[in-house]
């Protein structure tokens, strides 16, 4: 039973991974990363519940808090990027690559 929870969270993590790598919409990328963190949380909470300790829950609170901290920066990122480019397309932000290519 415990393993099922673990496998579920691994699957969820992989889904998040696929989304974060393959999509070009910055908000969807952000949400995929959140999904990955949630998968980790599931793992921790199930450990806590099956082993009857509270450490897992505490760690999972940490993960949630870290996710929240990242969220704040991501919001700032959305705003700055949308202001500059009027789009959420990550592939538009490639002037750094260009300087390399034109050389």
């Amino acid at each position: 039973m415990f393993k099922n929870y673990l496998i579920l969270s691994i699957l969820l993590f992989s889904l998040g991974l696929i989304g974060a790598v393959s999509r070009r919409n910055i908000i969807i990328i952000y949400m995929s990363i959140e999904l990955m963190l949630n998968a980790v949380s599931i793992m921790l909470v199930s450990y806590s519940s099956f082993y009857n300790t509270n450490t897992g829950v505490v760690l999972s609170i940490m993960v949630t808090a870290i996710a929240a901290a990242e969220a704040a920066l991501f919001m700032a990122l959305f705003v700055t990027l949308y202001r500059k480019k009027k789009s959420l397309d990550t592939s538009l932000f490639n002037s750094l690559k260009d300087t390399n290519a034109t050389k």
Binding site: L17, I18, S22, R23, N25, S87, D89
Partner: peptide, 24 residues
């Protein structure tokens, strides 16, 4: 119209899944 233009979205996702699959 401001959404990213992703013509190869399905292809990209399948390719990524192929890469991610072994890790999973």
């Amino acid at each position: 119209k401001n959404l990213p233009h992703e013509p190869h979205k399905t292809r990209d996702m399948i390719l990524t899944s192929l890469v991610v699959f072994p890790i999973t």
